[in-house]
Design a protein around this nucleic acid. Structure first.
Lengths: 260, 260
DNA sequence: CGTATTCTTGAGCCCCGTCAAAATCGGTGG
DNA sequence: CCACCGATTTTGACGGGGCTCAAGAATACG
């Protein structure tokens, strides 16, 4: 694992694109300086492994740009993407002897890498940093539990719509997309169909069919395989069955078949 | 929400059954005393709601005994149990304005309850407590991500076996079960079939059929609907597809790159 | 322009969901 | 102790959503 020498301690953080969205946000000027001193920039090409499942932790990192996928695999090859990391997200499981997942660059990725020992020392010395990481972990847990509901109970079309919605919300922060009109979103998918199916617990073919279905119904438009235009976010949200949970329902515990 | 007056500050924690497994474990004698001062015991009968989804947080608590289920629900009634809490587990999402889930007693439950404001003050004053809670949250996240793989990729029988395995590992800490011989486990299910199906993303009928199947194959024995005997944990583990790599089957579609 | 990869589309099937009914359990009262 | 009743669980029959297998189109790449 090659580490590039850091070049400019003084300015790197001040010009950092994710400075105020990452875990660094909560740090004071002096804390930032400490962190900066051990940080190294690193660029990882799409498809390359960053961390191996079960291997000893080698590194922590902020995602500066690009998308990282975290996967878990069953022995027979069945696998699942348990999480996606976007710009400003944090990679690495503090306080664990080994990684519980496999981390791989889904697109070309820029990382701000912190060596294990140094980062954990900082964590111990600066309570503010640990607190921020705790906050971030809670957000991760929220997202994970939300996704469980999708995997357990949503239909294929709802899953695909939910996925596109999630991407639409997170990717526009990057340069490859922009909001062009209110409620109209345009972005480039960071994942292949195979990877999407591994996010959703479906097969490639089902994902493809559901995307076609959404296209046919006019909920989305495909510029090309990877590029998607969403004319009306509300309609996609509807297809995702993402409506906010209302008041506790009347004891209807068994699934009620969806109407319309 | 009725709060019982605390009776014996001095002795409660020293006689607490979960004293050394809960988040209290990491606390010093003086910290324990502070926590103890605001703690209240509370007993919740099976089926009663403890925390409402989306409602303002009212309370944090240690589970002293019993099982608590955490559920999320879609508007049309589809629901999922995103987590189970057993003795020594912690209930409540610190730093969040509202609860992201419903918490309900699955069995009769004994809680050690901490009022919101008091607990958060302690959290701020005693870094050790926050650190411990962070550790606990990381464990929760691990479990959640593991469960996602189950929901996304395991077959019905594997799911049910995995569930029984999980219960077998956690429930024996309670008085309602005991290890009788090496690899033989006997326990009482804390959940109904309906609740199990909501854990696994299946239907009641499928859960029932798979349990029957496991029984027919001799992997488990049913004393009655709720009471289960596992003659050989290894066989159940096998059925759960929880085992370490045997024969990596024909290169799956997207294989894990890079084994070093 | 040719080849490899990715994506789409089609046909058939199977696992699991749905609907329905029977069996078992737990509790209650005679 | 037993009869009865509601709730839970099991079992059966059947259908459909999504998986599998297999081409065929579109795209990327040299």
């Amino acid at each position: 694992m090659e580490i590039f020498p850091s070049i400019d301690h003084a300015s790197r953080c001040t010009t950092c694109a994710i400075r105020h969205r990452s875990i660094c946000d909560a740090l004071s000027a002096t804390e930032i300086l400490s962190l900066n001193r051990i940080a190294r920039s690193r660029v990882v090409p799409a498809g390359q492994m960053i961390l191996g499942e079960g291997q000893a932790r080698t590194v922590f990192a902020n995602i500066v740009s690009g998308v990282v996928k975290l996967t878990k695999t069953l022995d027979d090859g069945r696998q699942h993407i348990i999480g996606l990391l976007f710009a400003s997200d944090f990679l690495g499981r503090a306080y664990r002897a080994e990684n519980p997942y496999f981390a791989e660059a889904a697109t070309d990725v820029e990382l701000c890498v912190f060596p294990t020992a140094g980062f954990e020392r900082l964590l111990a010395e600066h309570p503010g940093l640990e607190h921020r990481l705790f906050q971030y972990t809670l957000t991760e847990l929220d997202a994970c539990q939300e996704w469980m509901l999708l995997l357990a109970r949503k239909k294929a079309e709802e899953r695909v719509a939910s996925f596109l919605l999630m991407i639409a919300k997170r990717v526009p922060n990057m340069e490859c997309s922009r909001v062009e009109r209110r409620d109209e979103v345009h972005f480039v998918l960071p994942l292949s169909r195979a990877e999407i199916s591994d996010c959703l617990g479906l097969t490639i073919e089902t994902v493809s069919r559901q995307i076609t279905r959404l296209k046919t119904r006019g909920v989305i438009e495909l510029v090309n395989y990877r590029e998607i235009l969403i004319p009306d976010l509300a309609r996609l949200q509807e297809a995702a069955y993402d409506a906010p949970a209302k008041v506790p329902l009347p004891k209807a515990r068994r699934s009620v078949p969806a109407e319309d």
